[in-house]
Design a protein around this nucleic acid. Structure first.
Length: 522
RNA sequence: GGGCCGCUAGCUCAGCAGGUAGAGCAACGCCCUUUUAAGGCGUGGGUCGAAGGUUCGAAUCCUUCGCGGCUCACCA
């Protein structure tokens, strides 16, 4: 880590130390409700915390990185992208941890969503300590915190009412209950005995009973109280939040007051991160609509380092778009440039160098490579992959990639191939014609041109793109063809399309064998 | 109504520990007669939303205003 770094992650690390003082252990927290596929907007929070955690650790601090799964939240709505919609609908109003996995694999709906993300986070080098809130609540781990809220319910109500449009009722209780009979949250807490005991009545099944907070698994604090209670319990020093929480009167604001006045602790250092939009794939991110873009979707197209780069290189409090269109190529080029700057292979200004280096470090899944990795521009990679019909091993062989670099590059190649298949514009795609396919019908002039080209290709032994380009124009002149006609003729013969990559370079990349094989029939 | 973010070259944006305005794309030009999607080199182009203020110096800090967007005031 460079001491002069002004990367936002380092700035927040410093701020945490400054505001919380020197501590033996700093706790950084993040979390989300797995009420559906965890989308890339939620990922922004985890990676933001991860970057700050790394910054703190690099300053020699011990850090606990918590990731809370708020799986004791209510299942409110069936997301459009889930299978078995009707079946899931039956479980609305239950805690999501008690909704069955619609895929029938995991122990619950919540677990399915959690597992999907946990596996992917590991791939991008994020390994927090997961906390499963359902387990906490259901073992009454928060009984004391709930009792505390009940004892101070009038103060809490006053605090919450400050920003509410309609005040909470006189008999409001700062606790909710999942009916032990029908498991729904359609209950009303009717009384509290001033100690550990609360009574409730369920409006769905008419069940009514009295619970002991120390033994029940049914009681839960509402979000705005749950959050500060956990801050105090877990001694959270840092936790960012999305803009939906960060407005004045939003949940961070009220939690800040509640943690101070009720739980006698200080709110964590925080910042607001903005939302993420998607370019080239349309639709707004939302876990309840069908258009969910998950970390998995992003990893289909961006290798893990580049995913990290995307977030490490962007200030968290501004909105940015993740692109699936042609920008993908540029992002990769930017990353490669950042890498060259890090390894001193490209000159930039001092200020910029410091910044790029830090971004590069934070973009690594694990450690920074010892030597400058083998680079291959994605554009070129796309062409090679198409020439080799997506055979990654063949491409890596062709490039003579060193053994220790193959794994990393094959990840990139897979991403490039996925991008080509799913997102690349039609113009960008091609499939070389098979040598076994029937020759095209051509007229005499065209035949002459193709024959000449065949000769040129056979004779070329020291491939030089510029030289070959000149010879191509030589053929055009000799055959008195229009350049456009000549080029589209050759593209038709090679890839069955009217247009294609710049011809000279493309012929060289395809190779003499391949091109010769296709030309010799004419 | 409150809070937050944005307003910089034709377009998309970077720059924001204050120190002579940047990138990519587009445009234009050149790369031995070169007009092919992805090549190379180069050029032009901006009163940095507006007005004040702090400063030797502000796109960068402060204040006010305008326009656009998001968000809270239900639940999480």
């Amino acid at each position: 880590m460079n001491q002069a770094s002004i990367h936002w992650a380092d700035i927040y690390a410093d701020k945490i130390i400054r505001e919380k003082g020197e501590k033996d252990l700093y706790t950084c927290a993040s979390g989300v409700t797995p009420s559906g596929t965890v989308h890339i907007g939620n990922f922004r929070e985890v990676i933001s915390v991860d970057l700050v955690v790394r910054a703190l650790r690099e300053k020699g601090k011990q850090v606990r990185f918590l990731y809370s799964w708020d799986e004791y939240d209510v299942f409110r709505k069936v997301p459009a992208n889930m299978p078995n919609q009707e079946k899931l609908t039956e479980y609305l109003r239950r805690p999501i941890t008690l909704v069955p996995d619609p895929y029938g694999k995991e122990k619950s709906y919540a677990r399915h969503n959690e597992k999907q993300l946990e596996e992917l986070l590991h791939l991008v080098g994020i390994d927090p300590e997961y906390i499963y809130q359902a387990a906490r609540y259901r073992t009454s781990a928060y009984a004391a915190g709930i009792k505390r809220a009940l004892e101070r319910k009038d103060t809490i109500r006053t605090l919450l009412d400050e920003h509410r449009s309609s005040p909470l009722p006189e008999d409001w209780m700062p606790v909710s209950v999942f009916c032990t009979s029908c498991l729904r949250d359609t209950t009303e807490v009717t009384s509290w005995n001033g100690d550990w005991s609360i009574s409730y009545k369920c409006s769905s099944c008419n069940n009514a009973e009295t619970l002991d907070l120390r033994k029940t698994e049914a009681a839960k604090l509402p979000w705005r109280i749950d959050w500060p209670m956990r801050w105090a319990l877990e001694k959270v020093d840092f936790e960012p939040a999305g803009k939906d929480h960060h407005s004045e009167g939003g949940s961070f604001d009220t939690s800040r007051k509640i943690v101070a006045q009720i739980y006698e602790a200080e709110a964590p250092v925080t910042f607001q991160y903005d939302f993420i939009s998607i370019k080239g794939r349309g639709g707004k991110i939302s876990s309840s609509s069908g258009e969910v873009i998950s970390l998995g979707d992003v990893l289909e197209v961006y290798q893990p380092e580049v995913v990290r780069y995307l977030f490490a290189g962007t200030r968290p409090n501004t909105e940015f778009a993740i692109s699936f269109d042609l920008d993908v190529l540029k992002i990769y080029e930017d990353y490669d440039k950042c890498e060259r700057v890090y390894f001193g292979q490209e000159d930039v200004g001092e200020k910029k160098r410091i910044k790029e280096k830090r971004i590069y470090e934070l973009s690594q899944v694990h450690r920074v490579p010892e030597r400058m990795p083998f680079q291959i521009p994605v554009r070129h990679l796309c062409n090679l992959l198409q020439i080799h019909s997506g055979n990654i091993t063949a491409v890596l062989d062709f490039l003579q990639v060193p053994e220790d670099q193959r794994e990393r590059l094959s990840v990139r190649a897979e991403c490039a191939w996925n991008w080509l298949q799913t997102y690349a514009p039609e113009d960008f795609r091609f499939t070389p014609r098979s040598e076994k396919s029937d020759p095209l019908k051509v007229n005499d002039t065209e035949r002459k041109a193709l024959n000449q080209l065949y000769q040129v290709v056979l004779e070329m032994n020291d491939p030089d793109e510029k030289d070959l380009a000149e010879r191509l124009y030589g053929i055009i002149t000799d055959c008195e063809m229009e350049p456009g006609d000549f080029f589209s003729l050759v593209y038709r013969v090679l890839i069955g399309k009217e247009k294609g990559p710049r011809l000279a370079g493309f012929i060289l990349t395809l190779g003499r064998e391949r091109v010769g094989g296709l030309l010799k029939k004419y």
